[in-house]
């Protein structure tokens, strides 16, 4: 089991955002997490990636407990994430954005940056080559030197994913990667996600675009009011009366 979420509870004051949720993610799958707005999906992401300390339960990644670790350590262990509302580094080019993620793979030490410009330059070339590979996977290598935040929205989404992939994760958490994309862009995103899975990276996905979820997911978990109400293959979940009610009930309001 790659990621084990066990009896996870997250409480903010009196508000229970996530209520005793258990969830397992197997290596090599695309696992989608769906549910109406405010059902606690992003909160689960925030706990798993280390932004909140859970008020109850544990999270284990490759058998090691990670709940309570600082976010950057979790990333270094091989668990990366993207943000729903893009959080690109605004002063940086696309290339630099991706290079930040490669920082903890760099071999140069601080004293070398002060005294040894030659090995720093060599290392920089190596990192840039690596970054370029990631940009190619996301099909944005031609924008490498553009200011990241000046790109169209759809491309910024891809930079966001590229940045997460550059940390060289085994599991990547994608928070609504299709939000705000048009149909062509979504189709391209689908191909990219499948390609990511094919390269051996497990994907944990929060997404509202049901068509996309149904097309690519191996397993779907459904949250409602902070509780897990269903889990299974796409076809099983989409027929589940509890799930239908949760969604229709919301729409009927």
């Amino acid at each position: 089991m790659l990621l084990e979420i066990e009896n996870l509870t997250m409480q903010f004051g009196g508000l229970v955002a996530v209520n005793n949720v258990s969830l397992n993610i197997q290596e090599g799958e695309i696992h989608a997490l769906i549910g109406p707005n405010g059902s606690g999906k992003t909160t689960i992401f925030n706990v798993v990636s280390g932004y909140y300390k859970p008020t109850g339960g544990v999270v284990r990644f490759r058998g090691k407990q990670i709940s309570g670790l600082p976010a950057y350590r979790i990333t270094a262990l091989g668990l990366a994430r993207t943000f729903q509302n893009l959080r690109l580094f605004r002063s940086m080019t696309v290339m630099e954005n991706v290079l930040v993620s490669l920082g903890h793979h760099a071999k140069t030490r601080f004293w070398q940056h002060v005294l040894d410009p030659f090995s720093v330059r060599r290392e920089e070339e190596r990192l840039k080559e690596k970054a370029l590979e990631t940009l190619r996977v996301m099909r944005i290598e031609q924008y490498a030197d553009e200011q990241a935040t000046s790109l169209p929205y759809g491309l910024q989404r891809r930079v966001e994913i590229a940045r997460a992939l550059a940390t060289e994760p085994t599991l990547v958490l994608l928070d609504e990667p299709a939000a705000g994309l048009n149909e062509t862009e979504t189709a391209e995103l689908r191909d990219i996600l499948l390609q990511i899975r094919a390269s051996g990276i497990t994907v944990f996905l929060v997404e509202h675009d049901m068509k996309l979820v149904m097309e690519i997911s191996d397993v779907v978990s459904v949250l409602d009011y902070g509780k897990k109400i269903a889990e299974g293959s796409c076809s099983a979940v989409s027929c589940d009366p509890v799930v239908i009610e949760a969604y229709l009930g919301k729409e009927g309001e």
């Binding site: 943000f83 630099e96 930040v100």
Partner: peptide, 22 residues
């Protein structure tokens, strides 16, 4: 180089910097 990028990442977006392993 990488130190400067880590610095700027923290200045630009502290939360995202952490998520990228900084």
């Amino acid at each position: 180089h990488r130190f400067g990028r880590a610095f700027r990442a923290i200045r630009d977006d502290y939360v995202a910097a952490k998520a990228m392993g900084v």
